[in-house]
Amino acid sequence: MKKNPLWKILNGIGLLLLITIFALPFVWMISTSFKTLGETMVFPPKWIPNNLLWENFSKAWNSGPFLKYFLNSTIVALGILVLQFATIIPAAYAFARYKFKGSNFFFGVTMVTLMIPTQLIFLPVYLQMSAWGLLDSLWALILPFASSAFGIFLLRQSFKQVPEELLEAARLDQASEWQIIMKIMVPMAKPVLITFAMFSFIAHWNDYFWPLVMTTTDASRTLPLGISKLREVDGGVAWNILMAGNLILVVPILFVFFFAQRQIIRAFVYTGVK
């Protein structure tokens, strides 16, 4: 390894630059969300506003049925997650551990769905939802994502790594297949499950396209749609209010990140078993 001090300094500067690139927009968003509208227009931008305008948040929150949006978003993101767990865990176990006729074919089909973008299939799904009378309901936002090819793939890989003897030991211990899944496989795949849960939650929490297509009333709209509506106030864009709304949108994700990070580390500590 290079111990050259110059190298270390360059390395440090490089890392700082990277962090700045990623963090600057975020810091700007936070800063803007506390400014007056006038302050948002100042050039060069002021990083720390004169007064912290907390009322931007209440203005944003009260500009529409944000509690409803927030609840909808929570129900949709968590509902999707629950259904995904319920489907991907047994599917991944079957693909990882059973040899059945056509298992390769079905796994192949599952993988192919990974390559199809949502924009391509929204029309048939829309028609299906319409046929079922589920349009403009939370079901239309949840059901299409009830399973995840990505999740099946990820979890199958991790299930495949569990040594066969563990399952044999469990079978000798009179464990049913379901108990093997829940008591042995799932705890061992905890880091993968948490990682997947994080991806899934963030993707669906932030999803703009799908709710935009599937919903028409506030009763079933989610936060990203609500936030985007903030742009339409009073002709011009109230950047400070918009950023306050964005911050409201992002805070739960930060919370999830924070929580998941600790969990992932813990899960890794407990599983690295030989």
């Binding site: 040594p163 003897e165 563990l166 044999e168 030991a169 469990a170 000798l172 008591k183 042995i184 705890p187 061992m188 905890k190 407990y270 599983t271 078993v273």
Partner: peptide, 15 residues
């Protein structure tokens, strides 16, 4: 009604 001891012990790592 048998019990088996495996070469790699096959202990459940999360328990």
């Amino acid at each position: 009604n048998i019990a088996m001891v495996f070469q790699n012990y096959a202990l459940y790592p999360t328990m």
